[in-house]
Structures are given as C-alpha cells and as structure tokens.
Simulated scan of single mutants.
Amino acid sequence: MLITKIYKADEIQAAAAELKKGELIAFPTETVYGLGADATNEQAVKRVYLAKGRPSDNPLIVTVSSLEMVKKYVVDLNEDAQKLIKHFWPGPLTLIFKIKPGSLSKAVTGGLETAAFRMPANRVTRELITRVGVPLVGPSANTSGKPSPTTAAHVFHDLEGRIAGIVDDGPTTVGVESTILDMSVTTPVVLRPGAVLGEELERFLAKKVVFDRHKVAAEETPKAPGMKYKHYAPAAQVLIVKEADWSAALAWAKKQHEEVGVMALNENLQSEKPVNCLVYDLGKDIYTASQHLFAGLRYFDNKKQIHYILAAAFPEEGLGAAYMNRLRKAAGNQFFKN
C-alpha cells in the first residue's frame, strides 16, 4: 500500500516530481479537490479510474495552467471561446472543445472526439501544473459516487494508500464543481451547472445557451463528468426538504427511533429541533450552503447511526441550480413528503 503524503503549498516541487513519475497527486481548486495525473501518460490516467473506482466511459477534465496548453490539443478556438477564456479563466468554468485526432488518449476522453478543459483559480495548483509541464486530468479526488472532497482531509479519508500525495491548500471556497459548457456544438450547451451561471453566460455571449437536462442512456458515453452515474451519495438516504415542509419534516424526525441528520440554514431551525436530530449548519444563504453541501454529506457519512438526512432545498435558479443538481443526485431525487 502507498504512503499518502500531505504536501504543503510550498512543497509543490516535490509533488510535481511525483506526477512526472506517473504517480497520482490530489490538488486543491476553488471548487473541490481534484485527483491529478499526467494527462499525456495513459497508464497514469488509467490508475485514476482504478483509484476512484470510476467507470472508464466517464471522461476526465483536462486541467491546465495556460492557454498555450489548450491550443496544443484543440482543433480551433473560435471568437466566443476566446472571449470566454479571457473573461472567466482562471475560474470555475470548464469548456468542451473538439480536439486534434490522437492528441489525447481515449482514457482521457472516454473515446470521444472532444475533451473538457479547465484552468482553476487556485494559484498553487496552476503553479503545480506549470512545474509538471503538461496538463493534468482532474476528476474530483473522492471514491466514485461519494460526496466530492472540499478539504485535504476528505481526500485522505477516501484515497489514503491509493495515491502518492495530496497538496493541502485549505478548504475550497466554492464547494460545488465547475460549470461545464460544451463549445464543440453550434449552440453552446450547459452540461453541468456550477458557480458560473448559465444566464450569465447567455448575457456575456449575447446568444442563446441551451441547458441540457437529458438522462444519459446506458449505452451512451457522457460528454462530461456527472451526467450518467450516481453521484455525491452518502450511505444514508437523503430527503430533500422544501422550505414550507420543515415543521412537518422535524415532526417526522421526532418520531424516529434513531438519530436523524439535518442539513439546514439557521432560519430553517428557528423552532426547537427534536433531541434525536444531529444538525449540520449550512449557514445563512445559498452561497454558504453550496460551499458546505459536500462537507455536510460527508459529515453524516461518518455517522453510521444516521439512516436519514433531511437536507434543505433551494429554488433552482442562479447558484441554486448547481446546488440542487448535486443534492438531487445525492438524494436519488427523493423529497420529504408530509
């Protein structure tokens, strides 16, 4: 079994050396922690799938530190793509482009003729990629299907002994994965909502942006991560609670014989909570709730006595669309019903 080392932000040269040798190193971004491997090393990329237990037809995001890295693989960057990159990178926006034939392994692309590229806002990780000299694949650094990691401790919990190291730069600030925008088609398509809002992209480009909500078929290769397989799910059953249903949900929880997990805003807990409820505070609004969503799911995943988690719903607009996208998947789309 590997010894998984924790690297501080000023130790990235050592972490870069491990990546150059084909080892796996987790890295911080503003969204969640990613699991890094040399994107040009097919064997290293395949080890990412093994470490995560990830299906091999689920494509990986190519994480870069410069525009020059992207140009090496992409067929063409049209005017809209260049505008998006200039305005939103570095940041939580992933862009899908058609790539030059054979420029990236099928292990990276899932066998597609496109690939997803992102330049994270985290300075430490951009410096890490620059020192490696090639792009890194960067799926979330967790066991596949489980809540995404927002701290180095979360990564260590899931992947200790499976990867060579983790670069620790503290908790992430956004908390949900990047928006994925498909630029390989005539009309841009949001394949996964995130902190960069679809409405914001429409305004910026001054053109229609499609929001793809179709379910990927069993035989279909998804164009982006998170579209096909179960994601973000703790062992307990998550029940999504609409704001108007909190009183009824807490009354239901009070009747349960075992402890019930509660993930809620302060205002949802104005009334006295049942003594058998274990609370994880999501803060004051959608921004703090998105930041703490995965940490809350992980918190209850470590509480084996918890069989149900009541989690606050939000209107599916703005950042709420990204939050609810993740929460619906974690809950298997199950809402609390009075």
Results as ranks from 00 to 15, higher is better:
231 H>D: 00
326 R>E: 01
209 V>A: 07
272 E>S: 13
248 A>M: 08
207 K>L: 05
214 H>Y: 13
206 A>P: 02
263 M>W: 08
333 N>V: 12
285 D>G: 04
236 A>F: 05
325 N>P: 04
271 S>H: 11
264 A>V: 00
226 G>I: 07
217 A>H: 14
288 T>G: 03
274 P>A: 02
294 F>H: 13
231 H>L: 07
272 E>H: 11
278 L>M: 13
213 R>H: 11
227 M>H: 00
304 K>D: 12
303 K>H: 14
205 L>Q: 04
234 P>K: 06
285 D>Y: 01
236 A>R: 06
241 V>P: 01
246 W>V: 00
212 D>S: 10
239 L>M: 10
323 Y>S: 01
230 K>F: 10
330 A>D: 04
249 A>D: 04
270 Q>F: 11
321 A>I: 08
267 E>V: 15
230 K>S: 11
264 A>R: 03
293 L>P: 06
273 K>G: 02
318 G>D: 05
238 V>N: 00
331 A>L: 09
214 H>C: 10
329 K>A: 12
297 L>G: 00
246 W>L: 01
294 F>G: 07
209 V>M: 04
275 V>P: 08
239 L>R: 07
240 I>L: 06
332 G>K: 09
218 A>I: 14
335 F>K: 06
308 Y>K: 13
206 A>H: 14
312 A>P: 06
258 E>I: 06
303 K>C: 10
292 H>N: 15
283 G>C: 00
323 Y>M: 04
225 P>I: 01
252 W>F: 13
275 V>E: 14
315 P>V: 10
261 G>T: 02
244 A>F: 13
279 V>A: 05
275 V>R: 13
246 W>H: 09
240 I>K: 03
237 Q>L: 08
326 R>G: 03
307 H>K: 14
290 S>T: 08
311 A>E: 03
205 L>I: 10
304 K>H: 12
320 G>S: 05
236 A>P: 06
268 N>T: 11
310 L>N: 00
326 R>A: 00
285 D>S: 11
255 K>I: 12
221 T>G: 01
